[in-house]
C-alpha cells in the first residue's frame, strides 16, 4: 500500500501541466463577484427568521383585530409585559448572533471554522425556539382570557352561530379551537424551520462530527 501511495504522490505532483490555467484578467474579474458561501446563506436566512414574526404586525387588520380582542378580554397588561420581555430577549439574540457572525474567519482551522458557523446557527435556532414558544404562549393567554371572560361570544361576534347551545359549551368549543389552532400553527412553523435548518447544516454537522470523533 505504501508503494502505491508513494507512486500516487509522484504522479500527483506531476499533474501541474494538465491543470487549467486562468489568466490574470479572468482572476481579476472573479474577485469582485458575489460570494455564495454557506455563511452568506446563513446570514440572510437568519435575518429573515428574525424579521418574519414581526411582519405579522405590519398587516393592519391583524394588528387592530387582535389588539381589540386582547383589550376586550382584559389581557392588555399581560400582553404588554410579554411584549417587553420579548423585545429584550430578541435584542439579546440579535446581539449574540452578530457577535458570533463577526467571529467567523476563513483563516481558522477547519474545525474551529465549522464550530463557529454551527454556533452562530445555533443562536438562531434558540431564537426560533423562543419565537415558537411565544406564539404558543400568546395562544395560551388567549385561551385563559376566554375562560375568564363573561362576554366572549359577543366580542368575537359569534352570537348567531351557536343558537341553542349553553354558554359554557360554546366557551369550551372556542377555547378548544384556539388551543388546537395554536398548536397546529406552532407545529407547522417548527416543522418547516427544522427541515430548513437540517438541510442547511447537514454537511457542516457531518464534517464536524468527523473531526470531533478522534478528539474524545
Amino acid at each position: 500500500m505504501m508503494d502505491e501511495l508513494e507512486l500516487l504522490k509522484k504522479d500527483w505532483q506531476k499533474k501541474e501541466e494538465h491543470l487549467p490555467k486562468l489568466s490574470y484578467d479572468e482572476i481579476h474579474t472573479m474577485i469582485w463577484k458575489k460570494s455564495s458561501s454557506i455563511v452568506k446563506w446563513i446570514f440572510y436566512i437568519s435575518i429573515i427568521e428574525f424579521i418574519i414574526p414581526h411582519l405579522l404586525y405590519l398587516v393592519p387588520s391583524m394588528r387592530n383585530n387582535s389588539l381589540d380582542i386582547y383589550t376586550d378580554l382584559k389581557l392588555t397588561n399581560a400582553i404588554l409585559v410579554v411584549s417587553i420581555l420579548q423585545y429584550v430577549v430578541i435584542f439579546y439574540f440579535i446581539y449574540q448572533f452578530y457577535k458570533r457572525y463577526k467571529e467567523i474567519s476563513v483563516l481558522d482551522s477547519a474545525k474551529k471554522l465549522t464550530s463557529k458557523i454551527l454556533r452562530t446557527r445555533k443562536t438562531v435556532k434558540h431564537y426560533v425556539f423562543f419565537s415558537l414558544s411565544m406564539v404558543l404562549l400568546s395562544f395560551m393567554i388567549l385561551v385563559i382570557g376566554i375562560y375568564f371572560s363573561d362576554n366572549v361570544i359577543e366580542i368575537l361576534g359569534l352570537e348567531d352561530n351557536f343558537e341553542g347551545m349553553s354558554e359554557e359549551r360554546i366557551k369550551l368549543i372556542i377555547m378548544a379551537v384556539f388551543a388546537i389552532f395554536g398548536v397546529v400553527v406552532t407545529a407547522i412553523f417548527g416543522g418547516i424551520y427544522f427541515l430548513l435548518y437540517g438541510l442547511l447544516t447537514r454537511k457542516l454537522r457531518r464534517n464536524y462530527q468527523e473531526l470531533q470523533k478522534l478528539e474524545v
Binding site: 455564495s36 458561501s37 454557506i38 455563511v39 446563506w41 476563513v106 483563516l107 481558522d108 482551522s109 477547519a110 471554522l113 465549522t114 458557523i117 454537511k203 457542516l204 464534517n207
Partner: peptide
C-alpha cells in the same frame, strides 16, 4: 491551502 480547503470543506455549497 487553509483558505482553499476551508472553502471546499465548509463554505462551499
Amino acid at each position: 491551502y487553509r483558505v482553499a480547503l476551508n472553502t471546499a470543506i465548509t463554505l462551499y455549497r
